[in-house]
Design a protein around this nucleic acid. Structure first.
Lengths: 232, 232
DNA sequence: ATGTATTCTTAACCATTACTTAATATTGCA
DNA sequence: TGCAATATTAAGTAATGGTTAAGAATACAT
């Protein structure tokens, strides 16, 4: 994909910064739109459907964090990449308390070169597994009696190909990343669900059960009081 | 082991986050070094030989996953603890990290309290039962006729692998942490059950009995009126 | 949008294992 | 020997995980 295929939306209340960012990003060939506050940002985003949004954290009225929340709630934009622009080091401690759901944090003052390489890194990463041009994602990993194809969310067991739902797949991926090693329930939560998401105690069990149902009972062993481990 | 005995390396291209992390981790007494990209991270790691490395997944040039791969290839660092910093828990990048064999995943934005407790948990887990802190290279500990693998929650005795229940395992871990040394009943209570939990006098006996049943009568010796000791 | 299918989470209940205790036997030392 | 400390065994209790099905959330297709 070319740079010119990507749409980037900038939201900042400082006209100077907006101009500066816009100039440098356009120079690389990206399509750029701008907005000068959160409300406007959301409106433009709705029509422009950008691939990436750069949001200033500090804005009057609706700040970046709030805007980000709103954006994530909109189905057509829930998967857009969002980068926060923070002014100083104290800002990070401020947003540290929020479950903001940004994809990256960029701090001012910004050097154009750094900015561009970050945007590219974000876009590149987000595209992994979609246009499959990548090494890591396309690799099929064999562990014991099964093989895991990350790119296609597929598990090959003997002759059959099983397509697992996301959570099951991620759980399997985690456990199989270190066969034999015991993962505590906490580690599983953190790895598969993320630390901010709280789910009930039986949720993991049920997913383990589904995996065992599909892959055989012996693949995942329970260590009572400790956790689970993948064995081959 | 004290916090100040642990060395932690932070790798992130964002100076603010680096500073934020560094400040909060240093405050807890850990020794901290920083690097602002993957290449530098590897160089510092080689000299600093940290116990734990926190790697931002998203970095320009060499990203966290690549860096992790490289680190794991280096014999002197292949067993260092690695935690990935990911921007969003649902992000695909997190899944990509499963392959690289990270020990934990921490998602931004980071709350200092959560961060610290995670780091401690990781270090504690890796060090369980070992008071000689230099033993990072192997989670398997050989003592006399048996071997204890705390990562797999297994005891190897001759050819067979025994998986012990939690309390038994922890009791064994405690006694074997200092072979020959006599542990009083009180020390065992504190070490295995915790100071606040009160259990009857016979509880320890029963657990000792179970261990002897499984591992042989000679491994644990009773010193009447004093306590127990592990002998090889 | 609307309905439909899939996936995820929860709740209720069950089963198993681990842990503790109580009762009785045995040990080893003053 | 006698007695307190520990061993042993079995039985009771608690903790943890397993199972199932129903409901909520999500994605998907029309």
């Amino acid at each position: 994909m070319e740079n010119s295929d990507y749409k980037i939306l900038l939201v900042d209340d400082e006209p100077d910064i907006l101009e500066f960012l816009s100039y440098n990003i356009k120079k690389e060939g990206f399509q750029v739109e701008t907005a000068s506050n959160g409300v406007e940002g959301i409106e433009v985003a709705k029509k422009f459907l950008p691939h990436l949004i750069i949001l200033d954290v500090m804005m009057p009225e609706m700040d970046g964090i709030e805007t980000c929340d709103k954006l994530r709630e909109m189905p057509e934009l829930s998967d857009v990449l969002i980068a926060f622009l923070t002014a100083r080091s104290e800002d990070y401690s401020q947003i540290a308390g929020f479950d903001a759901g940004a994809d990256d944090y960029i701090s001012k003052p910004i050097k154009p070169k750094v900015l561009i390489s970050r945007l590219k890194a974000m876009l590149k990463r987000a595209n992994r597994g979609i246009d499959n041009g990548d090494d890591r994602t396309s690799s099929i990993k064999k562990i014991g009696p099964i093989a895991i194809d990350k790119e296609r969310y597929l598990v090959i067991k003997g002759e059959e190909e099983l397509s697992l739902p996301r959570k099951e797949f991620e759980l399997l991926l985690l456990l199989s990343s270190r066969p034999q090693r015991v993962f505590t329930r906490e580690e599983i939560y953190n790895g598969v669900w993320g630390e901010n998401i709280i789910v009930g105690d039986r949720t993991i069990d049920v997913h383990i059960r589904k995996l065992r149902e599909k892959l055989g009972d012996d693949l995942i062993k329970t260590i009572k009081g400790v956790g689970y481990k993948f064995v081959d």
